[in-house]
Amino acid sequence: MAGKISIVLIEHSYLLRAGMESLLMELPEVQLTEVFDGSEKRLAEKILHLKPDFIMINPKSVRDSLNSFIRSLGNEVPLTGLIDENTPPEIRGKFKHILVITDSKYDLLNRMHKLIGTHYTKKSDSHESRPLSERETTVLKHVTQGMTNQEIAEKLFLSVHTVTTHRKNITKKLGIKTVSGLTVYALLNKVIDMREINQ
């Protein structure tokens, strides 16, 4: 779904799950993609398949397997721990962010807003906010001329894989997915002119 931040929740307690669901409903930019109770088989695999932006987990829901669970998730998705005052510091330390479940609604929402904010700032520090590189501009030009990845690879003496990577980066940087959308962008920014696309 374009634009929404997707969250996966792992929480075994029904009431806390319902509470988190209703809290997240108050944040229009967020979408709760899936809820697990922690007992599912091959949980990490299932979650990675969903490609969430954030994972929220109550460490008690996976009990002893917390370490292996975190390991199998890798570092791709930031983990938010749902903890309380009694959670030992060594468990707290495993999470990138924490939410204290006994906090007031006001504090919880505040924390959530900050958390969501990190998602956007993370994006803008990375390469995605820079304009297209010279190479990417060349690839863009050829894409708008209707060339396939294979043809572009041959023309520029690159592997098809490299061309695919360039195309992915172009789409990420510009926020434009379709070839005709890219063509409009290229015309607006004088990467190409009308005569060139009719070739």
């Binding site: 634009g3 926020g175 434009i176 997915k177 379709t178 005709s180 959308g181 409009v184 607006l188 920014n189």
Partner: peptide, 16 residues
């Protein structure tokens, strides 16, 4: 059929 709508939004927000 959503992709083009997404592109159009970005064209208006960022580039036009």
């Amino acid at each position: 059929v959503e992709e083009k709508l997404y592109d159009l939004k970005n064209l208006i927000i960022k580039y036009l």
